[in-house]
Design a protein around this nucleic acid. Structure first.
Length: 435
DNA sequence: GTAGGGTTAG
């Protein structure tokens, strides 16, 4: 809708003959991109008689804003007129010294699963500012290294760098994911008493998550209800997740009802409640939730896992048989199963949600992350870590199998679930099973 | 006229 005003101004610009001005043209590209009209932005860009750095940047930023990441990269390589730029080239050009670039690189490495590289970039950055510090703090947070988060945060304060809103989100999240309830509250309180920061919905969500994850559901609920601002979906979402983790169906149902009103199109809430009913053997109610999903036109995003091998990305869905090496993959899966069973492993069939009893255990073995693991064991050279990413949270059974596999095959396995990393080494996970 | 870091949930 807003673009209507922009179009009117665009018309006026044309009438007065300013459409070929490079400043005006770039601003129009930017305007269309920000109105989520990327095609119009592209047309504008194509029609510009000349373009400069800002025009190109406006296009790239526009792609990012519209979540067209691949196109952003393609466009960028077009600017350079060469193939993809590598981190090595960034260092050579000297751009690595730029704090914008280096903080982005910290984030990039962390999100690609390499915390050590992220740390190296941070150490090499000359004048880290609040964004650089927050980038490395978040990186450690996403990798479950809460000790480092706290250490870095304290170092940052000693260096005289003032934390901001986002820094505290990461610190609080680190506390919640490692059961540091008291410390979490201390940091939360320090926002107002020390740092002059007003907590926002994200901070409140972290605090509800902190209490909820620790199993203190009633306190979490009371906290959510006492928030001075109107609690948003993320606050109730955190509480619903805690109800699922700790099996509180009654509270879960109340919270889910709230969420269905606030965000009826979010499939996650339906799935959580449905799973809770199923796990409690209340299949009729579970079906009712599924029906509600259908009525509201909501569809569950299918779970999938992917793994990079030699510059190629392989994607697996549950029960996937589309890969050319499917036979070997399923054989490897069988092998993992036999070896794991020799340990004290017992299939956690409560995580097999939609299956008839006798198929439950077998079905667990075809979760997408296990398929990716089997493929990784077949293809990733010994000694190199197996890196898997998954778009959804994993189930308890997969988490257990990853631990066993790391020990049995003597492999480091790094798995990202949504946006947090678990590192499995010698039969243990970096999250120490608190997740 | 453009540009870096973030939470919960399947």
């Amino acid at each position: 809708m807003i673009v209507l005003h922009g179009e009117q101004v665009h018309c006026l610009i044309c009438k007065h003959g300013f459409e070929f001005d490079i400043f005006v043209g770039s601003a129009l590209v930017d305007m269309y991109a920000k109105c989520f009209e990327m095609r119009a932005a592209g047309r504008m860009f194509d029609e510009m008689p000349e373009r400069n750095l800002v025009s190109w940047n406006s296009m790239i930023v526009g792609f990012l804003l519209n979540k067209l990441y691949d196109q952003a990269v393609r466009f960028f390589t077009e600017v350079l007129g060469e193939t993809l730029i590598t981190p090595d080239q960034i260092i050579k050009t000297g751009f690595g010294m730029n704090t914008c670039v280096s903080s982005s690189m910290i984030t990039m490495y962390a999100k690609c699963g390499s915390l050590v590289d992220a740390q190296r970039v941070f150490q090499e950055s000359e004048y880290p500012n609040v964004v650089s510090w927050t980038a490395i703090i978040s990186a450690c947070q996403q990798h479950g290294c809460a000790n480092q988060v706290i250490e870095l945060f304290e170092n940052m304060l000693e260096e005289g760098i003032k934390p901001d809103y986002i820094t505290l989100v990461s610190v609080l999240s680190a506390c919640s994911h490692t059961g540091r309830v008291e410390e979490g509250f201390a940091y939360f309180n320090s926002m107002t008493t020390v740092h002059s920061l007003n907590p926002g919905p994200e901070h409140y969500a972290c605090m509800v998550d902190l209490l909820g994850r620790a199993g203190r559901l009633n306190e979490a609920k009371r906290f959510a209800e006492s928030i001075p601002i109107k609690p948003d979906a993320s606050v109730w979402g955190a509480l619903l997740g805690a109800c699922r983790n700790h099996g509180d169906l009654e509270m879960g149902r109340d919270v889910a009802d709230k969420l269905f009103e606030i965000e009826p199109n979010n499939p996650g809430n339906y799935v959580l409640l449905c799973n809770m009913y199923t796990r409690n053997g209340r299949l009729e109610e579970a079906n009712e939730v599924r029906r509600l999903m259908g009525v509201n036109g909501v569809r569950k995003e299918p779970g999938c896992s992917w793994i990079d091998v030699k510059n190629e990305t392989f994607v697996f869905t549950a029960h996937d048989r589309s890969h050319s090496r499917t036979k070997e993959i399923y054989e490897m899966l069988e092998k993992i199963k036999q070896l794991v069973k020799k340990k004290v492993y017992v299939a956690a069939t409560q995580f097999a949600i939609n299956n008839v009893e006798e198929y439950k255990e077998q079905s667990l073995w075809y979760h997408s992350e296990k398929l990716a693991l089997a493929f990784g064991l077949l293809t990733v050279p010994a000694g190199a870590p197996i890196r898997i990413k998954k778009n959804l949270r994993t189930c308890g059974d997969c988490h257990t199998v990853m631990k066993f596999a790391s020990e049995i095959f003597n492999r480091e396995i790094i798995v990202r679930y949504i946006n947090r990393f678990h590192q499995f080494v010698d039969g243990l996970c970096s999250c120490r099973d608190y997740w």
